[in-house]
Structures are given as C-alpha cells and as structure tokens.
C-alpha cells in the first residue's frame, strides 16, 4: 500500500527561536505506528509538499512533536501552522539512535543548533532510566543564547553534566562561549565505556566525532545523524544516497566508523 499521509492536528505550538517552531501533533483519526528516538516522519504541508523531520518528542498516547526550522517553502508553511491546523504525516521512517546499546555505559550527547531536537527524546529516555546508564552528559552549541532550542527545559535535566555554549553571546550571557567541542573536556566520561550521540551541521559533526575518537571513544560507538535530500523515505527515489548508504533505509543515524570515510569525500 502506497503510504498516504495521515492527518494530524496541531495541538500546541511553541516558538523555539526566531525561525524555529515546535509543533505538537495528535492524530485526527487513526495513529501511525510508534516512533522511536532518531526516526523521522515525512511531514506534509497542504499544497506545498513534504519534508523529512525527526521526532523531537514521542508520547505513549500517539502524540508527536516535530521541531521545524523555516528554511524553504514547505518548512515556512509548517512553521506558520496554528493550533487546530492539520498536517499529514507518513512514517515512522529510518533507524533509531539505538540508545539501548549504551546500557551500563556513559552517554554523551552533543548537539549543535537545531540538532538538539532529534536528540531530545533520546536524552529523555536515558534520563528516565538512571539505573541503565552510567553518566549522561548533554553538550549544546548554538549561534546565540536565543538560538538554543528548548532552553527552558535543558537546565532541568538531571544529567551528570550539562553545558551550553554559544558563538555570539549577548550582554546577559554568563555561560560558555566557543565551539561545542571545548565542552568535551568538562563532561565526565570514560572514553572506552562511552556511547556518544551527535547531531548538528555536518562540519560540527565531523569536528565533534573526530575529537571524540581522538579521546578514545570507539568509532563504532559514536552515533551521528546525517542529512541528505529526501523525497520518498521508502528507499525508491534515490535522493538520500551518501555513497553506499540509502539514508532513509540504513540512516539517518550512522556510526562514525561508517560515516567518516564518506563525509571526507567532497560532494559525495
């Protein structure tokens, strides 16, 4: 059966930054299968088109949240949605962060910009099971203090270490300034007993993953979320290829061992 979008109603809308909005969605009728952290939906804006968006919240009730940055016609349309409006969702698509593999290990979450959104459900899952993981650290980098997604809730997370750093601080910023990798020295983790989860702009992913590997985190335990153009999400359109990977099928999350050689080839 060709996947047709399933109507979902916007039940809450939270502006995150000047250009980013989180939409909380509930199914109008039948719900989609459960999403796992790391997976994405194809979100349809009526008359505009579809884009892939990772889930930034998964609720047991079938409700979902998507954090969307306005960068094109479809995302503009979605960001302009009001409570009560309807969007279409297909999914869940793609693989997951596979947090469960980090059982008994330190969990290091490194997010750049809107990259925090897909990591949010992973952070909440890890913190919900304090006995399952050793130390959970969350490192967030953003352009300005106003560009930190969900900044109201970050400091409430009971992590072993939470660091937020920005490129351009305002006058009132009393926290860190600089690239997100500089926070790595302050997070408590035993490199060879650590799983790292990284999402953000590709150069930030490369810099972070390289530094983690240099510090001794095994490359196959550095999980990064990758992004390419995506049309169908079902493995048939060919757009999301990154070398041998069809990202909608074997991604968007990949191990650094697998991703590093691919990301080092220009225009692959």
């Amino acid at each position: 059966m060709t996947a047709v979008p399933v109507p979902h109603r916007v039940v809450a809308r939270r502006p995150e930054t000047a250009d980013t909005v989180t939409l909380h969605l509930e199914p109008v009728g039948a719900a989609l299968p459960d999403f796992a952290p790391g997976q994405f939906a194809m979100v349809h804006s009526f008359g505009r088109g579809e884009i892939p968006v990772s889930v930034s919240s998964v609720q047991a009730t079938g409700g979902l949240a998507h954090t969307i940055r306005s960068v094109g016609a479809v995302s503009d349309g979605l960001c302009a949605m009001r409570v009560g409006d309807v969007v279409g969702l297909r999914g869940p698509y793609g693989n997951t962060w596979e947090l469960e593999r980090a059982y008994g290990c330190d969990v290091l979450v490194v997010a750049g910009g809107i990259g925090l959104a897909p990591l949010r459900p992973l952070i909440l899952s890890a913190l919900a099971e304090p006995a399952a993981y050793r130390r959970v650290s969350v490192l967030v980098g953003a352009r300005t203090p106003g560009d930190v997604i969900g900044r109201q809730e970050i400091d409430g997370w009971p992590t072993a270490f939470t660091g937020v750093t920005v490129d351009q601080p305002g006058a009132d910023w009393r926290r860190d300034v600089g690239v997100v990798t500089q926070l790595l020295g302050r997070a408590p983790f035993e490199p060879d007993g650590t799983w790292a989860f990284v999402c953000g702009p590709e150069p930030m992913i490369r810099a972070t993953a390289r530094e983690l590997a240099e510090r001794g985190v095994p490359r196959d335990r550095i999980r990064v979320s990758l992004e390419r153009n995506m049309r169908c999400a079902t493995g048939h359109c060919g757009h999301c290829q990154l070398g041998p990977l069809l990202l909608c099928q074997v991604g968007p999350v990949a191990n650094w061992a697998q991703a590093e050689p691919l990301l080092s080839v220009r225009e692959l």
Partner: peptide, 18 residues
Amino acid sequence: RLWSADRTSEAEIAYTAH
C-alpha cells in the same frame, strides 16, 4: 500520481490514495 488531498473544511484534510 501517488495521492491527493482535499481540504474538506476549515481545519480538516482528507488524503486519498490513488
């Protein structure tokens, strides 16, 4: 053609597979 969508009222959308 894959599917179509109709705005059936102010806040309702119906999707139809082809």
